[in-house]
């Protein structure tokens, strides 16, 4: 095999590719002999590590990632506490659904707190009156308004977990994060149907233009998030994530690039998009709902 050709091809689309390999650049420039080349080519793990290093995300600790997740779960749990206490739920089915969802958010808070402690970290905290909690002034007075916030919170959560899963690659913490992530997606689907929306993200949503479904930041991005409940690091923000109506995945325009022509709405709905931490904690999204 000729993986030098692959490096060349990478260089064609990314002129900085060799710089991305950083200190390993010297390795490439010194690979003069056929013996060295074949030795390298016989080491697939080296290749994997090389690419992973070159394109890896910002260094973050698992505790940072978990505290980020815990912050969102505390926010959700406190929101559903307010929702159940508001007295607006119109029937037993709605009450049962919100009760079930709150049970899961509470369980996620407990699980993430235990996991962070087990990892030797300090979990962020929140109660109904202190620390990380839902901003009382942002809590809507009507059932319709409360349900809309629930949809925005759940869909944001689904995007947020995706945005940091890659930092947990190869760890059992990743599996836990994925198991929480799909529960949030189930919640989102149910809340959406309660609101008369499609279970999946759609341009026909009544809130399709909400920042939850777009991307970018309005505030000044930071690499540290500090709330009354604690602080944690997040990766630097450099560019907006794809919006939810995105139809291009890994450089493939999926409406036209596959065996069949697909409708843009179906393509957009077939893939949920990620949101980076700076976008999630932005005032236009979850950040604006924190007390």
């Amino acid at each position: 095999m000729n993986f030098f050709q692959i490096i060349d091809q990478l260089a064609a689309v990314d002129p900085d590719v060799l710089d991305r390999f950083d200190s390993r650049r010297a390795v490439f420039s010194s690979l003069g002999s056929a013996a060295k080349r074949s030795a390298l080519a016989a080491t697939p793990l080296f290749l994997g590590a090389l690419f992973q290093k070159a394109y890896a995300g910002t260094k973050s600790t698992p505790v940072d990632v978990l505290n980020y997740a815990l912050t969102l779960e505390l926010l959700e749990a406190d929101f559903y506490r307010l929702f159940l206490a508001a007295g607006t739920l119109p029937n037993a089915a709605a009450t049962a659904a919100i009760t079930q969802i709150k049970k899961h958010e509470d369980a996620h808070v407990a699980l993430l707190t235990r996991t962070i402690q087990a990892a030797g970290g300090t979990p962020v905290t929140g109660t109904a009156t202190s620390g990380i909690r839902f901003k009382p002034s942002a809590f809507p007075s009507t059932y319709a308004g409360q349900l809309q916030v629930a949809q925005l919170l759940e869909d944001t959560g689904v995007r947020a977990y995706k945005g940091r899963a890659a930092e947990l690659v190869g760890t059992t913490l990743l599996t836990t994060a994925l198991q929480i992530h799909s529960v949030e997606a189930r919640h989102a689907a149910h809340i959406r149907v309660m609101r008369g929306q499609r279970p999946w993200v759609s341009n026909t949503d009544d809130v399709a233009t909400n920042p939850t479904y777009t991307s970018g930041v309005t505030g000044t991005p930071s690499t540290q998030v500090t709330t009354p409940g604690g602080a944690f690091g997040i990766p630097a923000y450099t560019k907006a994530s794809p919006a939810e109506n995105n139809t291009i995945q890994v450089n493939l325009p999926l409406t036209t690039a596959l065996a069949t022509t697909y409708d843009a709405a179906d393509v957009a709905a077939a893939f949920d998009e990620y949101l980076q931490p700076a976008e999630v904690v932005d005032a236009s999204r979850a950040g604006g709902l924190l007390a």
Binding site: V158, Y161, K162, A165, L178, H181, S182, V183, E184, A185, R186, A188, A189, P199, W200, Q249, A269, A270, F271, D272, E273, Y274
Partner: peptide, 9 residues
């Protein structure tokens, strides 16, 4: 991750 949440929906 982008696919699994759609399956969960």
């Amino acid at each position: 991750g982008q696919i699994v949440s759609v399956e969960a929906r």
